[in-house]
Design a protein around this nucleic acid. Sequence first.
DNA 1: GTTAACAGGTCAACGGTGTTGTCATAAGGT
DNA 2: ACCTTATGACAACACCGTTGACCTGTTAAC
Lengths: 252, 252
Amino acid sequence: MSERVVPPAARQRRRPTKQGVMLSEGLIVETALRLIEEHGADALSVRRLGRALGADPSSLYRYFRHTDDLMLAIADELIGRTLRTWRPTGDWRADLRDLGLRMHAGALAHPRAAVLSSYRVTGRAYEIQAVETILGVLLGAGFPDAEAVRLYHVFVDQALAYGALDSASLAMPKAARDAEAAVWRSTYARLPADTHPHIAATARHLVADMPHSSYPGALDLLLAAAAARLAEIRARAGPRTATMGTSVNTAP
Amino acid sequence: MSERVVPPAARQRRRPTKQGVMLSEGLIVETALRLIEEHGADALSVRRLGRALGADPSSLYRYFRHTDDLMLAIADELIGRTLRTWRPTGDWRADLRDLGLRMHAGALAHPRAAVLSSYRVTGRAYEIQAVETILGVLLGAGFPDAEAVRLYHVFVDQALAYGALDSASLAMPKAARDAEAAVWRSTYARLPADTHPHIAATARHLVADMPHSSYPGALDLLLAAAAARLAEIRARAGPRTATMGTSVNTAP
DNA sequence: GTTAACAGGTCAACGGTGTTGTCATAAGGT
DNA sequence: ACCTTATGACAACACCGTTGACCTGTTAAC
């Protein structure tokens, strides 16, 4: 190692691996994502990744300082992919709803990366682009600066937090997941009405609802609250238009 | 091990540890919580816990099948503590707000347990009590069964998801956390207005807002949306009262 | 061409982790 | 007093991330 770190993009002096592979940041990230996809969230370790690449595990430390440096690179790649498949229409509410669902789905597809990236600021290219885009949607809708930032923060954190939560749940072995769903049926649904009246009264709904993600519901509540707030702001600023829930993109 | 597992509560045949400690589920959970509190989230491992207890690590497997069995026990204890310090007033919105903030704070105090418990159903005593209580608040407020369950689900998941998210962030070494805050100041706040107009326009707010948890904001938006929904329900059912945002606790 | 610098791949080792199979023993019931 | 058995201890396994030392091929300069 000696002083090792990572020369950024100006890499030269390439040499193939003993097994003939040309390493690169891109190849490593891609392989890591493939590993996660094929063999589950826990399949990603420096050693296994090295094996999958046909390289010594320690070689990876020439490209990433720690494992979570690698995870951040993976996270940024995921942000990029999500953003690339998203087509804004100009309707802020529909656009944010679509984007939120895409972020959530993206997280579910890569549970391990999602968990790690959820609470980190990568500061990388795609992340910056995402911030700029989402802020643009909110400002374009007519939210004042401070409010737009607050909403941006809540929107992103909610998508990431739920993404991580549902990812973790999804990463459990299937048997364990089924067992959890069974707890609602066998434990909760059988509590007697005299000791647990509220659970007993709603048991049917609990059994049906609880095993699914509550993210779509949470997202809709968030957007509803935001729309109400926007209507209020518009009414206060000057009651001209009565349209609500939709907004023309008239950013300066 | 042979077939080992955990005889539930009917434990007898106590024998002290070599160092003279009498093990018990309770003592183990308490010690684990103390360990987390004193030495941070990563300080909890079977081996360290054994050392702290004055027992061989493998002894713990007589009480818990896996480490996350242990984590679930810890999680339930946390739920219990949170619930015990909460005093409902009858105002559903204020009560849920208070409870949400307490859950979030409780998670922050025990990051590792929070992350693990966030996506698990313990089915243990305190968890059941929490479900019953929260459902009672919502039903008492006047939400119909199905809606109450949906709201319960979103409320709890939101508290847990944000708890886990902010826990993870808090569990980072302080230096790393500071570095992340610096990214907002040094990277985002310096983007030129012509390439990133929206970020540039709101940079001041981003720097101020982003390093803090967005949970309180998210919680308030959720409660606002719920209150609006409740007003709608009441208006539809029969326009008698005009009070809104507050509710008398008239559960059957 | 020859050479010197060094990026980058490899090896071996360290200290950690969760988990389990085997064994010894003290406690309880009879 | 005996027998059973719950439970603690020990040792080992297979993994993990990380690092220091070494070696070698590529490149740039001469």
